[in-house]
């Protein structure tokens, strides 16, 4: 119960920090997406079923800060979590730093691609509020987000490793 409440509070705080602090930062800091890194922590730390439910809650709370029609962001977050879980369980063999960084990179790519695809679909359904990102801007933004996310994930992973021993190398198969 305590763990669930703590995770819920963490989701709320991270969403506030993302929307009201990080997204408004200048230059390249604004590319950081801390929610993707949080998803990777969920995949690392939790079993599949609770991980999916917390990913669902992450998406649901992020809807409050989202410009997209309700439900889109939740679907994207859950899909990203499923993809990361599949990648983690079937292709990566341990809970090492490299696995964590690889999952962060993969999560960043899949999340942004889903946003990109959703914006096109909504645009073609004539949702006048949705803008399509032009090709170069999207790829440059994705590259920057990859770099920033991986760097921050590295720092957070090392901090988590110092705080807890859960992130020591443990074979998953």
């Amino acid at each position: 119960m305590l763990r669930n409440s703590a995770l819920l509070l963490t989701i709320l705080i991270l969403d506030i920090i993302q929307a009201s602090f990080i997204n408004l930062a200048g230059e390249n800091v604004a590319y950081l997406n801390i929610l993707i890194i949080f998803l990777v922590f969920l995949v690392f730390y939790l079993e599949t079923v609770p991980m999916l439910w917390f990913a669902f809650l992450t998406g649901a709370i992020t809807e409050l800060f989202s410009f997209y029609p309700f439900g889109i962001v939740t679907a994207i977050v859950v899909t990203s979590a499923i993809f990361l879980s599949f990648l983690f369980k079937n292709f990566l063999t341990n809970r090492s730093l490299y696995t964590f960084l690889l999952l962060t990179a993969a999560g960043t790519i899949i999340y942004n691609l889903l946003i990109f695809i959703s914006s096109y679909i909504l645009y073609w359904f004539e949702d006048a509020g949705i803008s399509i990102v032009s090709g170069n801007k999207f790829w440059i933004g994705l590259l920057w987000q990859l770099i920033i996310n991986v760097i921050v994930a590295l720092v957070l992973f090392l901090i988590a490793r110092i705080i807890t021993r859960r992130f020591s190398i443990i074979k998953t198969k």
């Binding site: 009201s20 990080i22 408004l24 800060f65």
Partner: peptide
Amino acid sequence: QIIGKPSDTTAQIYL
């Protein structure tokens, strides 16, 4: 007052 910016869009949209 501006209180935030959605992270799922590159549009210049503020809350």
